[in-house]
Amino acid sequence: MKQRLVGALCAMAVAGGAFAQTPKKPAAKPAPQSPPAAEAKDAATLEFEKFRAEMEDSNPAELFEMKGEEQWKTKRGPKNVALAESCDLGQGVGKVEGAYVRMPRYFADADAVMDAERRIVWCMVEKQGFKFDDIAKKPFANANFTPDITNLVTYVAGHSRNMKVAVPLKDPKVHEAYEIGKEIAAYRAGPYDFSCNTCHGSDGKRIRMQNLPNLSTAKGAMSGVQGWPGYRMTGGVMLTHQWRMGDCFRQQRFPQPKYASDAIAYLLTYMIGNANGQVYKGPGIKR
């Protein structure tokens, strides 16, 4: 099994240029949609755990990190500038070490609170000259396509591996973002009267067999942060935290949040802020 995984991963690495193409999941076993019996689900859970264990030294996220690193360091865009020489993620221009776990934070140059993905997009637009609308048109990966921003976020997140989450909540702008995010999480509307808190407001709840982390606690919030950006076994795509927020708003029966918007940055400030002090293990694998 291990051999096969390594083989598959090498093949993907060699495919290099074909990276716009999302690599198919290495262990080609489709996760069952919603198996009828608990035993089946338990088997699926076990298999997933096994898969994750085997992936420990060869996490598929690392391939996206590699691609992101190359993109970070290469001169790109209409202005032909590298992010490594122009983009400040809060730790100094070009510095990625520990940046992911210290965002969202307030950036004076943009006069906005920004999560990692939003900040990188801002740099791509302001420093490299890419058009925001072009990026926002297809911001998330699908079966045939992984946007650059996904690789870049994964690269940056990889450089916060095993570091403690430390959103600077004492900064008044970040504090305000946190409080607004908390209100957004509690805001019930739409045909089903749902808010984030309907599904993520108390401990030990599930939708079908999917566990719902309680985002108001440090531990629960951390399980909403852990593993993102994440390589999703179902579908075999690399997805970011911004994607997860959007998909939950979909389940909430809300309209779609705008990409890299205040609303998402504030929600993430609330959620990641609640996880302060917990250790982030880096980009991971999601079911």
Partner: peptide, 12 residues
Amino acid sequence: KAIAVIKKDFQP
């Protein structure tokens, strides 16, 4: 403020 943000930051 949350309501104002929600009003401006969603699309159909």
